[in-house]
Protein backbone atom coordinates (compact mmCIF):
# COMPACT_ATOMS: atom_id res chain seq x y z
CA UNK A 1 0.00 0.00 0.00
CA UNK A 2 1.20 3.46 -0.85
CA UNK A 3 0.33 5.26 2.39
CA UNK A 4 2.40 8.33 1.48
CA UNK A 5 0.47 8.79 -1.75
CA UNK A 6 -2.94 8.58 -0.06
CA UNK A 7 -1.74 11.03 2.55
CA UNK A 8 -0.34 13.36 -0.13
CA UNK A 9 -3.62 13.44 -2.08
CA UNK A 10 -5.61 13.89 1.12
CA UNK A 11 -3.48 16.81 2.31
CA UNK A 12 -3.46 18.40 -1.11
CA UNK A 13 -7.26 18.25 -1.29
CA UNK A 14 -7.67 19.64 2.23
CA UNK A 15 -5.24 22.46 1.45
CA UNK A 16 -7.20 23.28 -1.68
CA UNK A 17 -10.26 24.01 0.47
CA UNK A 18 -8.35 26.09 2.95
CA UNK A 19 -7.10 28.21 0.09
CA UNK A 20 -10.73 29.13 -0.64
CA UNK A 21 -12.36 29.24 2.82
CA UNK A 22 -15.09 31.56 1.58
CA UNK A 23 -16.29 29.04 -0.94
CA UNK A 24 -15.81 25.92 1.15
CA UNK A 25 -17.02 27.01 4.59
CA UNK A 26 -18.52 30.48 4.68
CA UNK A 27 -20.98 30.04 1.84
CA UNK A 28 -22.68 26.86 3.15
CA UNK A 29 -22.82 28.35 6.65
CA UNK A 30 -24.40 31.55 5.39
CA UNK A 31 -27.04 29.74 3.37
CA UNK A 32 -27.85 27.64 6.43
CA UNK A 33 -28.37 30.77 8.49
CA UNK A 34 -30.67 32.09 5.77
CA UNK A 35 -32.73 28.90 5.91
CA UNK A 36 -33.08 29.36 9.66
CA UNK A 37 -34.14 32.95 9.36
CA UNK A 38 -36.71 32.19 6.65
CA UNK A 39 -38.03 28.72 7.57
CA UNK A 40 -37.17 28.57 11.24
CA UNK A 41 -38.13 32.00 12.49
CA UNK A 42 -40.33 33.71 9.92
CA UNK A 43 -42.41 30.77 8.74
CA UNK A 44 -41.70 28.34 11.56
CA UNK A 45 -43.30 30.56 14.18
CA UNK A 46 -46.65 30.09 12.43
CA UNK A 47 -46.27 26.29 12.01
CA UNK A 48 -47.64 23.67 14.35
CA UNK A 49 -45.36 21.10 15.96
CA UNK A 50 -44.45 18.06 13.85
CA UNK A 51 -44.30 14.76 15.78
CA UNK A 52 -44.13 16.82 18.95
CA UNK A 53 -41.09 18.79 17.74
CA UNK A 54 -41.22 22.56 17.12
CA UNK A 55 -40.76 23.30 13.41
CA UNK A 56 -37.56 25.33 13.85
CA UNK A 57 -35.96 22.32 15.55
CA UNK A 58 -37.55 19.82 13.19
CA UNK A 59 -35.74 21.20 10.14
CA UNK A 60 -32.22 20.92 11.65
CA UNK A 61 -31.49 17.33 10.52
CA UNK A 62 -32.91 18.02 7.04
CA UNK A 63 -30.79 21.14 6.70
CA UNK A 64 -27.63 19.32 7.70
CA UNK A 65 -28.40 16.49 5.25
CA UNK A 66 -29.14 18.93 2.46
CA UNK A 67 -25.80 20.71 2.88
CA UNK A 68 -23.78 17.55 3.48
CA UNK A 69 -25.19 15.82 0.40
CA UNK A 70 -24.80 18.77 -1.95
CA UNK A 71 -21.34 19.71 -0.66
CA UNK A 72 -20.05 16.11 -0.71
CA UNK A 73 -20.93 15.79 -4.36
CA UNK A 74 -19.66 19.26 -5.24
CA UNK A 75 -16.37 18.80 -3.43
CA UNK A 76 -15.52 15.32 -4.60
CA UNK A 77 -16.60 15.87 -8.20
CA UNK A 78 -14.60 19.08 -8.47
CA UNK A 79 -11.63 17.49 -6.69
CA UNK A 80 -11.15 14.89 -9.41
CA UNK A 81 -12.55 16.84 -12.36
CA UNK A 82 -10.27 19.86 -11.94
CA UNK A 83 -6.98 17.90 -12.31
CA UNK A 84 -8.51 16.22 -15.35
CA UNK A 85 -9.38 19.62 -16.76
CA UNK A 86 -5.93 21.09 -16.01
CA UNK A 87 -4.09 17.96 -17.09
CA UNK A 88 -2.37 17.61 -13.70
CA UNK A 89 -4.06 14.20 -13.38
CA UNK A 90 -1.06 12.87 -15.34
CA UNK A 91 0.84 12.78 -12.09
CA UNK A 92 -1.33 10.49 -9.93
CA UNK A 93 -1.93 8.37 -13.04
CA UNK A 94 1.80 7.85 -13.55
CA UNK A 95 2.49 7.32 -9.85
CA UNK A 96 2.68 3.91 -8.16
CA UNK A 97 -0.86 4.22 -6.82
CA UNK A 98 -3.72 1.77 -7.13
CA UNK A 99 -7.10 3.18 -8.17
CA UNK A 100 -8.54 2.46 -4.75
CA UNK A 101 -5.75 4.39 -3.08
CA UNK A 102 -6.73 7.32 -5.25
CA UNK A 103 -10.35 6.91 -4.14
CA UNK A 104 -9.31 6.87 -0.49
CA UNK A 105 -7.29 10.07 -0.94
CA UNK A 106 -9.89 12.05 -2.87
CA UNK A 107 -13.06 10.68 -1.29
CA UNK A 108 -11.46 10.70 2.16
CA UNK A 109 -10.74 14.42 1.89
CA UNK A 110 -14.23 15.21 0.59
CA UNK A 111 -15.75 13.13 3.40
CA UNK A 112 -13.72 14.91 6.06
CA UNK A 113 -14.83 18.29 4.76
CA UNK A 114 -18.50 17.23 4.68
CA UNK A 115 -18.44 15.89 8.22
CA UNK A 116 -16.78 19.07 9.44
CA UNK A 117 -19.37 21.10 7.61
CA UNK A 118 -22.24 19.06 9.08
CA UNK A 119 -20.89 19.63 12.58
CA UNK A 120 -20.41 23.35 11.94
CA UNK A 121 -24.02 23.65 10.79
CA UNK A 122 -25.18 21.76 13.87
CA UNK A 123 -23.21 24.18 16.02
CA UNK A 124 -24.71 27.16 14.18
CA UNK A 125 -28.19 25.68 14.74
CA UNK A 126 -27.63 25.76 18.49
CA UNK A 127 -27.48 29.54 18.21
CA UNK A 128 -31.04 29.59 16.88
CA UNK A 129 -32.91 26.71 18.52
CA UNK A 130 -32.50 24.35 21.48
CA UNK A 131 -31.65 20.84 20.27
CA UNK A 132 -31.22 17.58 22.14
CA UNK A 133 -29.89 14.59 20.24
CA UNK A 134 -31.54 11.32 21.22
CA UNK A 135 -28.97 8.97 19.68
CA UNK A 136 -25.68 10.88 19.18
CA UNK A 137 -23.67 7.89 17.96
CA UNK A 138 -26.29 6.94 15.36
CA UNK A 139 -26.37 10.60 14.32
CA UNK A 140 -22.60 10.58 13.78
CA UNK A 141 -22.80 7.31 11.91
CA UNK A 142 -25.44 8.69 9.51
CA UNK A 143 -23.38 11.82 9.03
CA UNK A 144 -20.33 9.70 8.24
CA UNK A 145 -21.94 7.21 5.87
CA UNK A 146 -23.85 9.93 4.01
CA UNK A 147 -20.64 11.93 3.51
CA UNK A 148 -18.81 8.85 2.23
CA UNK A 149 -21.60 7.75 -0.10
CA UNK A 150 -22.18 11.13 -1.70
CA UNK A 151 -18.47 11.88 -1.96
CA UNK A 152 -18.18 8.60 -3.87
CA UNK A 153 -21.05 9.72 -6.08
CA UNK A 154 -19.25 13.02 -6.64
CA UNK A 155 -16.04 11.17 -7.53
CA UNK A 156 -17.94 9.15 -10.14
CA UNK A 157 -19.56 12.28 -11.57
CA UNK A 158 -16.19 14.04 -11.73
CA UNK A 159 -14.60 11.14 -13.61
CA UNK A 160 -17.45 10.81 -16.09
CA UNK A 161 -17.89 14.54 -16.84
CA UNK A 162 -16.36 15.94 -19.99
CA UNK A 163 -17.08 19.61 -19.18
CA UNK A 164 -18.24 21.90 -16.39
CA UNK A 165 -21.84 21.71 -17.54
CA UNK A 166 -21.96 17.93 -17.19
CA UNK A 167 -20.42 18.33 -13.76
CA UNK A 168 -23.48 20.29 -12.66
CA UNK A 169 -26.23 18.26 -14.31
CA UNK A 170 -26.63 15.56 -11.67
CA UNK A 171 -26.46 17.89 -8.64
CA UNK A 172 -28.87 20.45 -10.08
CA UNK A 173 -31.36 18.31 -11.96
CA UNK A 174 -31.46 15.19 -9.79
CA UNK A 175 -29.88 15.62 -6.40
CA UNK A 176 -31.30 18.94 -5.21
CA UNK A 177 -34.92 18.04 -6.17
CA UNK A 178 -34.64 14.60 -4.56
CA UNK A 179 -33.31 16.00 -1.31
CA UNK A 180 -35.87 18.81 -1.18
CA UNK A 181 -38.73 16.42 -1.96
CA UNK A 182 -37.30 13.80 0.42
CA UNK A 183 -38.65 15.58 3.46
CA UNK A 184 -35.82 17.90 4.39
CA UNK A 185 -38.31 20.50 5.59
CA UNK A 186 -41.43 18.41 6.28
CA UNK A 187 -42.55 15.00 7.41
CA UNK A 188 -43.76 12.93 4.47
CA UNK A 189 -46.68 11.92 6.70
CA UNK A 190 -48.30 15.27 5.94
CA UNK A 191 -48.49 14.39 2.23
CA UNK A 192 -51.61 12.81 0.64
CA UNK A 193 -51.46 8.99 0.61
CA UNK A 194 -50.60 8.73 -3.11
CA UNK A 195 -47.63 11.09 -2.79
CA UNK A 196 -46.47 9.31 0.35
CA UNK A 197 -46.23 6.09 -1.67
CA UNK A 198 -44.50 7.75 -4.59
CA UNK A 199 -42.04 9.45 -2.23
CA UNK A 200 -40.93 6.07 -0.93
CA UNK A 201 -39.06 5.62 -4.23
CA UNK A 202 -36.92 8.62 -3.35
CA UNK A 203 -33.73 7.34 -1.70
CA UNK A 204 -33.21 10.66 0.10
CA UNK A 205 -36.32 9.94 2.22
CA UNK A 206 -34.58 7.03 3.96
CA UNK A 207 -31.49 9.06 4.74
CA UNK A 208 -33.28 12.09 6.08
CA UNK A 209 -35.75 9.99 8.05
CA UNK A 210 -32.97 7.94 9.62
CA UNK A 211 -30.96 11.02 10.46
CA UNK A 212 -34.02 12.65 12.00
CA UNK A 213 -34.66 9.52 14.08
CA UNK A 214 -31.17 9.90 15.54
CA UNK A 215 -32.15 13.39 16.69
CA UNK A 216 -35.78 13.05 17.82
CA UNK A 217 -36.46 9.33 18.08
CA UNK A 218 -39.29 9.70 15.53
CA UNK A 219 -39.11 8.81 11.84
CA UNK A 220 -41.12 8.50 8.63
CA UNK A 221 -39.74 5.03 7.85
CA UNK A 222 -38.23 2.48 10.26
CA UNK A 223 -34.59 3.32 11.04
CA UNK A 224 -33.38 -0.17 10.09
CA UNK A 225 -34.83 0.39 6.63
CA UNK A 226 -32.84 3.62 6.43
CA UNK A 227 -29.66 1.77 7.32
CA UNK A 228 -30.31 -0.92 4.73
CA UNK A 229 -31.04 1.71 2.08
CA UNK A 230 -27.84 3.70 2.63
CA UNK A 231 -25.89 0.43 2.79
CA UNK A 232 -27.26 -0.68 -0.58
CA UNK A 233 -26.63 2.75 -2.08
CA UNK A 234 -22.99 2.73 -0.93
CA UNK A 235 -22.50 -0.80 -2.26
CA UNK A 236 -23.92 0.25 -5.63
CA UNK A 237 -21.52 3.22 -5.82
CA UNK A 238 -18.53 1.07 -4.89
CA UNK A 239 -19.59 -1.33 -7.65
CA UNK A 240 -19.70 1.48 -10.19
CA UNK A 241 -16.27 2.76 -9.12
CA UNK A 242 -14.65 -0.65 -9.51
CA UNK A 243 -16.31 -1.07 -12.91
CA UNK A 244 -14.91 2.31 -13.99
CA UNK A 245 -11.42 1.30 -12.86
CA UNK A 246 -11.56 -2.11 -14.51
CA UNK A 247 -12.23 -0.45 -17.86
CA UNK A 248 -9.82 2.48 -17.46
CA UNK A 249 -12.83 4.55 -18.43
CA UNK A 250 -12.12 8.20 -19.25
CA UNK A 251 -8.81 8.33 -17.41
CA UNK A 252 -6.41 6.40 -19.64
CA UNK A 253 -6.55 6.20 -23.44
Amino acid sequence: MNIYAMRAIYHFEMARSFRAPLQSIASPVISTILYFVVFGSAIGSRMTMIDGVPYGVFIVPGLIMLTVIIQSVANASFGIYFPKYLGTIYEPLSAPISPWEMVIGYVGAATTKSIALGLIILAVSYLFVPITIAHPLVMLFFLFITSVAFSLLGFIIGICSRNFEQLNIVPTLILTPLVFLGGSFYSIKILPQVWQTITLFNPAVYLISGFRWAFFDVSDVPVTLSLVAIGLFSALLLGIVSWIFSTGYRLRN
Binding site: Y4, A5, A15, P83, E91, A95
Partner: peptide, 21 residues
Amino acid sequence: TLEPFETVLGTVNLSRGLFGK
Protein backbone atom coordinates in the same frame (compact mmCIF):
# COMPACT_ATOMS: atom_id res chain seq x y z
CA THR B 1 0.28 21.12 -16.59
CA LEU B 2 0.42 22.58 -13.10
CA GLU B 3 -2.10 23.54 -10.46
CA PRO B 4 -2.06 27.38 -10.66
CA PHE B 5 -2.86 28.14 -7.02
CA GLU B 6 -0.42 25.72 -5.42
CA THR B 7 3.01 26.90 -4.30
CA VAL B 8 6.24 25.59 -5.80
CA LEU B 9 7.21 23.78 -2.60
CA GLY B 10 3.69 22.43 -2.12
CA THR B 11 3.48 20.86 -5.55
CA VAL B 12 6.98 19.35 -5.37
CA ASN B 13 6.22 17.82 -1.96
CA LEU B 14 2.98 16.44 -3.37
CA SER B 15 4.94 14.70 -6.13
CA ARG B 16 7.30 13.05 -3.69
CA GLY B 17 4.36 11.78 -1.65
CA LEU B 18 2.51 10.45 -4.69
CA PHE B 19 5.53 8.35 -5.56
CA GLY B 20 5.53 6.78 -2.13
CA LYS B 21 8.44 8.54 -0.52
